[in-house]
Each structure stands twice: as C-alpha cells, then as structure tokens.
Design a protein around this nucleic acid. Structure first.
Lengths: 203, 203, 203, 203
DNA sequence: TATGAATGAGAATTCATTCAT
DNA sequence: GATGAATGAATTCTCATTCAT
C-alpha cells in the first residue's frame, strides 16, 4: 500500500498523516496512542491500521511528508541574490513556518531530542549535503566582502534555532511575554533581522 | 517525605532524581518507564516508589531540582557590568551548560514541547518576573547607548535558542558537521559572540 | 450454495479447498488465517467468503472432501483376496498416501488432537461401521487360520499409526534419518511389511 | 528468572507449565491463549507474564520440561537385557505414557505437525544421537540372531507410532471401539506385544 | 462475481502501582 | 527500608466478518 491506488486511499492516508502529526508533535512518539490518532482522523483504529500497518509506519510517513517542506526555505537560499536580502528572507520564511506550521517544528524537535532514531540517515545524508552546499554559498559571500567572515555552519544553526524557538518553545514565549495575540512572531522577526544583520554593538 | 529526614533518604532521592533526569530527557515523559529509572538508579521499583509515590512525582522533583541551576546564568546578568561583556559572558555560560548538562536542556525542551503541563506556573510566575527584571536592565543599557536599541525579550529568547540548540539538536549538529570531538561548542561560542555583537553586515 | 450451480463456482470452491487444506494442515485450525487461505487461493478475502460464509465452513468442506479418499484404502481391503497379500497391500497404499498426500494426513491428525470437534459424528458413524465390517473380515481370516489370532481393531489402529507416522512426524523422521531423499518411504514400507507379517522373533 | 530463586517462583513456574501443557496440547500453539493458561493456572494474566515474558517462552519451557521424561523409555532400552523382553518392555512403557500422560504426547505431536519450529535442534541433535546409539544396540541383537534382521530406525518409528497413537488419536480409538473404560490401553499393549514379536503370519 | 474499505471482538504485552513480608 | 509478587488499566496489533459498490 505504499503507493495509494485509489482516491479514498490517498485521502485517508493524508487524513491520518495530518492527525498523526498533531498527536505525535504534542505527545511525542511514546505518548501518542493509535487510539488518539484514529479518533482525530475520524476513523476506527482497525481501519487506520488498514492503511498503515504499525504506529511506527505512521510516524515514518509523517516524517517523510514533513521533510521536503521543512528544507524548502534553506533550498531557496539563492547564491545570485543579494546576501543581506537573502538571509533576511530566510529568517522571515522560517519564522512564518514557526507560526503557520508549529506542529511540524515540534515533531522535528521531538525526533532530535530522542537522538533522531528515524532521521539519522537523512541528517547525515541529504541534509548534510544541502548544508554543505549552502555553506559554500555563504562562504563565497563572505569572501566577496558582502557579509562578515563567519562560520557558515554555525550561522545556519543559529537561524534554525532562533526561528524554530517560536514554535518549539511557544508556551514559554507566551508565558514570558504575556499572551499577545500573534505579535510575537512579527516582533521576533524584526528583532532577528536586526540581530543577524547588525548585531548589538552600537555602530 | 517531602523533607527527607535521614541522610540515606536524601541520598536515595538524589540518586533517583539523577537517574530520572537521564531517562526522562532521553525518552520523554511517556517514553520513560519507572522500571528504567529504577534500574539506572540501582534499586528495585517498589523501593523507588517508596521514595516517590508516583512517576509524576519523580518527574516534578526532577524539574524542581533543575530550575535553580537552569536560571542561574540569567540571574547572573549584572546590570553593573559592561553590557557587551555581560552578554558575551551569558552566551558563554549557556553554551557551557549545553555542553556539560545536555540532559537538563533536553528535559526542559521536552516539557516545553508538551506545553509545559508541569511548569506553566513557574513560567508565568518566577520566570516571567525574572525576565522582566533583566529586560529592564537591557533596556537601560540600550538607553545609555551601550548597546543597540533592540527588543530585550526577543534578545533573551535568541540567546536561549542559539545556545540550547547545541544540546537539544546535538544529533543534528553532529550529523551536519561530521563528528568533530567537542569542537562544535567552542566554534559555536565564538560564532555566537560575533553574531550577537557585530551581526553579519560588513562594517 | 452447497450445490454449486456454475462451473466457475465449482472451480473456485475447489481452489479454495485445496488452498485451505495446505494452510490448515500446516498451521492448525486456529493458526490458519482466512487471509492466508485467500492469498494461496489467489483471490481476495471477501471473494473467498462469498463462496464459504465462514472460516469454519471452509474447514468443514476440506474435511468432507478429504473423507472419501481417506477411507478408500480400508474400503479396498478385500475379503476375497489373500489375507497376507491384502494386508501388505493395505500397508503399501497407506504409505503411498503418506508420501503423496501428507497435508491430508496432517489435517486429519490435527483434528484428532483437538478431539475431533468437526468429525466426531463421522468417527462414531461411518468410520465405526466401516471398521466393524473390516474387523469381521479379519476375524474370519484368523478363524480360517490364514493369519494369526489378533485383535482386528488394534491391528487396524497399528496400520494407521505406523503408516501415517511418515506424514505426520515427517520432520522427526527426516531429522533422525538425516535427510535421505524419499528413501524413507520405501524403507519404511519394506520394514512394515516385514513387521506385520513376521514380527521380530526369529523363526 | 531462568533459574527460579525462591520457592514461590519454582512452584508458580511449575503450575504455569502444567496449565500450559494442558492448554497447548488441546488447542495447539495458536489456539491456546495466555488468558486460558492463566485461568487454568489460577493466576492473573499479568502475574503469569511476570514469570514468563511471552507466550512463546511458556511454550518453550513446557517443551523443555517434557523432553527428559519423553525420551526416558528409549534411554532405558538396555543392551544387556534380553532383546525380546526389552522390546516388549519398551512397548509397555510407551503405552503407559500414552495412558498416563496423553497431553505430553499430543503437545509433541502438535509440534511435529507444525514442522517442529521449536524442537528441530533437539531432533537433529540429542534425539538423533540417542536413536543412532539404540539402533546400534538393535543391530547387534539382530547380528547375534536374537531378533530378526530389520531396519532398527524404522522399528523405533513403528514403536513410537503405534504407542503414541493411543494418546494422539484417542478420540478416534474411542469412537471406533465404543467407549470402553480404559480397556483399550491393555488390549492395545497386548496386541502390540504380539504384533512386534510374532507378526501376523501363522507359524 | 469481485474487491476496496471498515469494524468489533479479541489477544499479547506493557506499565504504573499496590500488597505482603 | 527493601523487595518479591501481584494486578487493573491501558496499548498495540490481529483477524473473522461485514459493508458498499
């Protein structure tokens, strides 16, 4: 059933994946129950297991669906663009994702915290290759004097960390700020642009 | 038994808390089993439950023990110090914690991802108050022209995010860099100092 | 549907019964799954259940188809023949069945081990009558001095037991002999002829 | 827990094994449920699983306990004894076991029918070696003219088959004979002694 | 006839917690 | 304090059977 044959199959698999994303990201892998996923997907548990043979298979499907969208912002970093603009745009896109797709971010964080048992191959494969490629771009920008000479790997980590924080630590952010509607994303984005471009030292 | 009467009680409670920290941070709350904690603590399950009545109680104890150390670096931010030095030092202390106490960081991250069911009071109470106090300090530094005029809350979030990333996303960091001994902490610290103080735009 | 109306029905019922025989005899009634039978029969599970309403019905059909062939060798025991020849021939036919239709033998054995819930009527009816009839034949042979005076019932049991052993305990026979191609059936037949006719005591 | 430490453990493991023997031999491995075993053992299912981690482990324990007793009659076949007496005695012991321990025999038969997934090693190891040793004894008896020259392996198979038949096919034996109290074991033993020693051909 | 989809009733484990000593 | 023994409440997964087309 890896390749859904019918429309109903495709739809139900998508419904299950969406439900599972919510449940897994909120409860972690072990905390999530097939029951909870089935209920949220609006189907019976055996029917859900008709589409995916095990809880683990559901989890892997969710990760797989996640991956492309997850890496899209980094892929979009364009060597030909203006470096400062590009980095600002990358920050913006990542903040938007934290705001619009927090479950995805939290699921990913959960997987990382557990040591990435289901993603280690991707991390050491595609992700590593992609980061290496983009690091080269950043290094070229540095060499051309378009941006400061900084370690491109740790720059990418910092962008990931600061933006995903607004999804992963949302509860803390809201507690510290006092609930503020959605202003935190806008303010965070503005701050990050400022931080990454100019730093704190007065010029 | 909240106030341990004997030395042996205090010791055993500490041993349990240490074991529980490891297990909870690696597996999440639901993924952790009392059995696993007991084994790691080197005692029988019923004996462990003699010291803490429930799994939940163990978890709360671990969080409680965590808290003081966890907030110490921010508490140490000294209004009287040189702002640039203070921020650099804060970054350094947090990176050191990520290196030396990654389990603590991951446990905290797990709790945040779940929506902080056991810490929400602290977040909205002590933590919020502490951040507000330090935000005032930062704002004063800005006003005095010692550092740029930035949103102090989001600055603190950025420091937390970037430093804790080296603990919480350790597996990803190592996968992307290729295993590198412990160099990543040193390089990360250097990068972050640079980023936070000067930003990327060439001067 | 007990009397299949069309050729396709008859064919499919036969295909199902053949597949079910294999599966039931290898796994036992409870160990067999409708899924496994359907797969081996090359049809979908609902389609299979269109031909037989329940798993139980399939099982009973298999037993029924089995029965005639199963009793044929005993039926063939001919009062008019030479007693020694007849018994030797019966042994041979049964050994041939063990070699050529081991699944049938094992299915039957399985049913006996469970207490024959689906065959008890046949056992106490047709089988008992048939055995009684043949016992009379044997007794007549004994009375005529053509064979020794032995209990005819237990003689029949012994013939069944020794011959079916080569099907039911095939794995043990092969393990003890070391795999030997098909020689075991030939050697077994020769031995049994010798045993039943002359016994072990030297003459 | 492979080596029971306490008396209670030893007792409960024995109780479970006894209950499991009954259930497995009546229902087969798949047909047996842990629930049924637990109930028959007079304990709760989780408690049973405290002593044996899985259904499979219970099954293997039962087989292991079975084995020694199961092979004892063959082991007792004494080269130094009178061959005819020895074989007669072996038949008697095996018939007694069929009468007194039918569950053991049926469990063994079930395992054989499934292809001996859990005993194949024993069959090809200890059992094969034991049979080879006893085959040598029998061959020596033949060579000395004490018994007829027959294939000793198939002789042993025949002894197993005929005697175990009274346990494994008990339901059929009783159906054919009409229920007869326990006479069938006595009559069967007498018949088998006669058959194996003298055969059917009149002298 | 045939099959994709759906489900209720199990069945094997797991696990936090309690009991008894 | 400490531990072997026991258990109720899940939780994952299986499977015979039914539904809808």
């Amino acid at each position: 059933m890896n390749a859904p044959r019918t429309r109903i199959q495709a739809e139900n698999r998508a419904r299950i994946a969406a439900a599972a994303l919510d449940v897994f990201s909120a409860e972690g892998f072990r905390g999530a129950t097939v029951d909870a996923i089935a209920e949220r997907a609006g189907m019976s548990k055996p029917n859900l297991l008709y589409y995916f043979p095990t809880k683990d298979a559901i989890y892997r499907e969710v990760l797989e669906r996640l991956l492309d969208d997850w890496l899209a912002p980094l892929r979009a970093l364009d060597e030909a663009g203006d470096p400062v603009q590009e980095i600002a745009a990358y920050l913006d896109r990542k903040i938007e994702m934290a705001r619009d797709f927090p479950a995805e971010s939290r699921l990913f964080a959960n997987e990382m915290l557990r040591g990435a048992p289901n993603m280690i191959d991707v991390l050491e494969g595609d992700l590593r290759a992609l980061v290496r490629e983009k690091a080269k771009v950043i290094r070229a920008w540095s060499a051309a004097g378009k941006i400061a000479k900084v370690d491109p790997y740790h720059l990418i980590f910092a962008i990931w960390a600061t933006t995903q924080h607004y999804a992963d630590y949302d509860v803390q952010v809201r507690a510290v700020l006092g609930d503020d509607g959605e202003g935190r994303f806008h303010d965070g984005a503005a701050f990050l642009r400022r931080l990454f471009l100019d730093g704190l030292r007065p010029r």
